[in-house]
C-alpha cells in the first residue's frame, strides 16, 4: 500500500472515531439535530393547512425539505465549522506535522460528516414518521431515492463546506454566512412551495443546491398528489441529479486549491491560545 493510501485508510479510522465521539455524547448529537427535530414538530402543527387546491398539507410538503436542509447544514456548515475550529485549536497544524497527516485529516472530516449526516437524517425521520401523516417512510423505493440524494447532496455540499471552512478565519465570519444561508432557505422552497414565488425568484432559488436537495427529498418521500406544488408538475429527477452534479464538480475542482492554500498557511501563528496561562506572544507573526 502506498503511504498516501495508508493516509486515506487512517482517515477512515479517524472519521469513525470522531463520529463515535459525537454519537456517544447526547449534547453533541442533540446539537446537530435539534433544528430539524424542531422543524418537524412545527410541521406537525401545520398539518391542518393545505396548499392551494392540492389537498396536501403545508406540513407534509415541508417535512422532506427539512431533511434536505439537514444535509446542507450538517454536511456543508458542519464541515466548515470543524475546519475553522481545527485551524484555531492546532488540530490542523498537528496533522500537518505528521506524515500524510493532511490526507488522513481531510478523509476523516469527509467520512465523519458523511456519517453524521446519515445519523441526523435517520434520527430526524423517527419523529417525522410518527408526527407527519403521508410520508412514504415505509416504502423501500423511497429509501433508495433518499439514499441517492443523500449521497449526491453530500457530494455537492461537502466540497463547498471545505471551501468555506478554508476561506473563513473565524467563527464570527461563519455566523454571518449562516444568516445568508437562512435567506437562501427562504427562497429555496423548503418551507413553502417555490411555485408560489414570483418567476424571477424561482430562477434565483434554482441556482443554489439547497432547492435541489429539497426537491430530491420531496421526490423520495411525498406522494404524487404533491406534484402539483412543483415547477412543471414534475419531480425532475434528471435535472436534480444534473444540478447537484454541477455543484459537485465546481466544488471538487475548487476545494483542493483552497485546501492547499489553507494547509500552507497553517503555522503556529494561526493557532489561538485559549488557555490564559499561555501568552498570545505570537500574534504579530504575519
Amino acid at each position: 500500500m502506498s503511504t498516501v493510501a495508508h493516509g486515506v485508510s487512517n482517515g477512515l479510522q479517524r472519521g469513525l472515531i470522531e463520529a463515535k465521539h459525537k454519537i456517544t455524547n447526547f449534547g453533541e448529537i442533540w446539537g446537530e439535530i435539534w433544528p430539524w427535530v424542531l422543524g418537524v414538530v412545527v410541521m406537525y402543527f401545520l398539518r391542518g393547512n393545505t396548499f392551494g387546491d392540492t389537498g396536501v398539507s403545508v406540513g407534509l410538503l415541508a417535512a422532506p425539505g427539512i431533511l434536505g436542509m439537514a444535509v446542507l447544514y450538517t454536511g456543508m456548515m458542519g464541515l466548515s465549522l470543524e475546519l475553522v475550529t481545527d485551524k484555531s485549536d492546532g488540530t490542523l497544524l498537528r496533522m500537518k506535522a505528521i506524515p500524510n497527516g493532511i490526507v488522513g485529516y481531510l478523509t476523516g472530516k469527509f467520512v465523519g460528516r458523511t456519517m453524521m449526516t446519515a445519523v441526523s437524517l435517520l434520527l430526524v425521520s423517527i419523529p417525522a414518521a410518527f408526527l407527519i401523516d403521508g410520508l412514504r417512510l415505509g416504502d423501500a423505493s423511497a429509501w433508495a431515492r433518499l439514499g441517492v440524494f443523500y449521497l449526491l447532496g453530500l457530494l455537492a455540499v461537502l466540497p463547498l463546506g471545505a471551501i468555506i471552512g478554508s476561506l473563513f478565519g473565524s467563527l464570527q465570519g461563519l455566523g454571518l454566512l449562516t444568516l445568508i444561508i437562512m435567506g437562501l432557505v427562504a427562497i429555496s422552497g423548503i418551507f413553502y412551495p417555490i411555485t408560489s414565488f414570483p418567476g424571477w425568484l424561482q430562477v434565483i432559488g434554482q441556482l443554489f443546491p439547497l432547492y435541489w436537495l429539497g426537491l430530491g427529498m420531496r421526490s423520495a418521500l411525498l406522494p404524487d398528489s404533491a406534484l402539483a406544488a412543483e415547477i412543471s408538475g414534475s419531480w425532475r429527477t434528471l435535472e436534480t441529479a444534473a444540478a447537484l452534479g454541477v455543484w459537485a464538480v465546481i466544488g471538487l475542482v475548487l476545494a483542493p486549491l483552497v485546501l492547499r492554500r489553507m494547509t500552507r498557511q497553517a503555522t503556529g501563528a494561526s493557532v489561538t491560545p485559549e488557555d490564559p496561562r499561555v501568552p498570545a506572544a505570537r500574534a504579530g507573526a504575519a
Binding site: 479517524r14 465521539h21 506524515p99 493557532v271 485559549e274 488557555d275 505570537r282
Partner: peptide, 26 residues
C-alpha cells in the same frame, strides 16, 4: 509547538494509537 489544545475530545491512548498509525509505513 507552542500552546496546542487540539484533539480535545480524544482520549489520550486513543489519540496516540491513531496518530502512531501514520508512521507505520516508515
Amino acid at each position: 509547538l507552542q500552546s496546542w489544545r487540539d484533539h480535545g475530545k480524544w482520549r489520550v491512548g486513543e489519540l496516540l494509537d491513531h496518530l502512531g498509525r501514520y508512521y507505520s509505513p516508515f
